[in-house]
Computed example of a mutant assay.
Amino acid sequence: MTNGQGYGGTGGHGAPPPPQYPYGQASYQQNPYVQSPPPQNPYAQPVPPSQPYPPQQPYPSQQSHASAPPRPASGLPGGFPGPAPRRSRAAVLTQFLLQWIYAPLWILGLVLLFVLLIFADNVGGGSGPSSDGWLKVNRSFLPPRRLRAELTGRPEDWERYVAPILARRIAAAEAAYAAGDGEVQADLGRVVRVGLALRLYRGLGAAGVVRLAERHGWHGVVAGTDAGHVRLARHFPAPAVLNAPAPQDPPAAPGTPWGPQPVRFAPLLPFVFLLQIVYVPVYGLLTCWVSRPEPDYWDRWGARWTVGPRAFRAEFTNSPAAWDRHIRRILDRDTKRISTAARTPNGPRVDRVHLKRATYRGAGAHRALRLAAEQGWTLDPAYTPDPANSLHLTRP
Results as ranks from 00 to 15, higher is better:
residue 59 Y to Q: 05
residue 64 S to R: 06
residue 65 H to Q: 08
residue 67 S to M: 03
residue 68 A to E: 12
residue 69 P to C: 04
residue 69 P to G: 01
residue 69 P to D: 08
residue 71 R to W: 08
residue 71 R to S: 13
residue 73 A to E: 11
residue 74 S to D: 14
residue 75 G to S: 15
residue 78 G to M: 07
residue 81 P to K: 05
residue 81 P to F: 11
residue 83 P to I: 08
residue 88 S to G: 15
residue 88 S to Q: 07
residue 89 R to L: 12
residue 89 R to Y: 00
residue 92 V to F: 02
residue 93 L to Y: 03
residue 93 L to D: 02
residue 94 T to C: 12
residue 98 L to N: 01
residue 98 L to M: 13
residue 99 Q to F: 00
residue 100 W to Q: 03
residue 101 I to A: 13
residue 103 A to P: 12
residue 104 P to T: 03
residue 111 V to Q: 06
residue 115 V to T: 00
residue 118 I to L: 13
residue 120 A to E: 07
residue 122 N to C: 04
residue 123 V to P: 01
residue 123 V to Q: 12
residue 124 G to E: 12
residue 126 G to F: 11
residue 131 S to I: 00
residue 136 K to S: 09
residue 136 K to D: 14
residue 137 V to H: 03
residue 137 V to G: 08
residue 137 V to D: 04
residue 140 S to D: 15
residue 142 L to H: 03
residue 144 P to I: 05
residue 145 R to G: 13
residue 148 R to W: 12
residue 149 A to T: 00
residue 150 E to S: 02
residue 150 E to R: 07
residue 151 L to W: 01
residue 154 R to P: 02
residue 155 P to C: 01
residue 155 P to M: 05
residue 157 D to Y: 02
residue 160 R to Q: 13
residue 162 V to M: 13
residue 162 V to Q: 10
residue 162 V to E: 08
residue 163 A to C: 00
residue 167 A to S: 14
residue 167 A to P: 06
residue 167 A to Y: 04
residue 168 R to L: 15
residue 171 A to D: 14
residue 176 A to G: 15
residue 177 Y to L: 14
residue 177 Y to C: 07
residue 178 A to C: 01
residue 178 A to I: 00
residue 179 A to T: 05
residue 180 G to E: 06
residue 181 D to L: 04
residue 182 G to L: 03
residue 182 G to S: 07
residue 188 L to Y: 09
residue 188 L to W: 10
residue 194 V to F: 08
residue 195 G to W: 06
residue 196 L to D: 05
residue 196 L to N: 10
residue 197 A to Q: 14
residue 197 A to I: 08
residue 197 A to S: 15
